[in-house]
């Protein structure tokens, strides 16, 4: 394990993700779509990603977020949690989500 790996935040069910200070969700009027703006890149989340991001307020844990999404989407909470953990890790690694 490198020192970099040791410092890498890992997405867990009790992580409470939030957007870092330099990242914000912005509704693009021209495209009629939500964009995730950071200083060096623009990300265009799909509907599912957007549902997740809107629940990332730093208070809810990933487990709680998945519980809400399971109700919204009438889907299996374990399947949702697997996907959300994988993508929270990916977004954290890309520094657009803080765990």
């Amino acid at each position: 394990m490198t020192p970099l790996d040791a410092a890498r935040p890992l997405a867990k069910a009790d992580s409470a993700p939030r957007l870092p200070r330099h990242v914000r969700l912005h509704f693009d009027q021209i495209r009629g779509a939500w964009a995730l703006l950071s200083p060096e890149k623009v990300l265009w989340p799909d509907e599912v990603s957007l549902s997740i991001l809107k629940l990332c307020d730093g208070r809810r844990s990933i487990a709680e977020i998945c519980g809400e999404l399971a109700i919204q989407y009438e889907a299996d909470v374990d399947e949702i949690q697997t996907d959300v953990l994988a993508f929270a890790q990916d977004w954290s690694d890309r520094m657009v989500l803080r765990l």
């Binding site: 995730l36 950071s38 200083p39 060096e40 890149k41 623009v42 990300l43 265009w44 989340p45 799909d46 509907e47 599912v48 990603s49 549902s51 997740i52 999404l69 919204q72 989407y73 009438e74 889907a75 399947e79 949702i80 996907d83 959300v84 993508f87 977004w91 890309r94």
Partner: peptide
């Protein structure tokens, strides 16, 4: 309309582009 769960995707475009 009922929403259906799918793996979340995000398309990235560099700000410069």
């Amino acid at each position: 309309m009922k929403k259906s769960w799918a793996k979340p995707q995000m398309c990235q475009v560099s700000a410069g582009f």
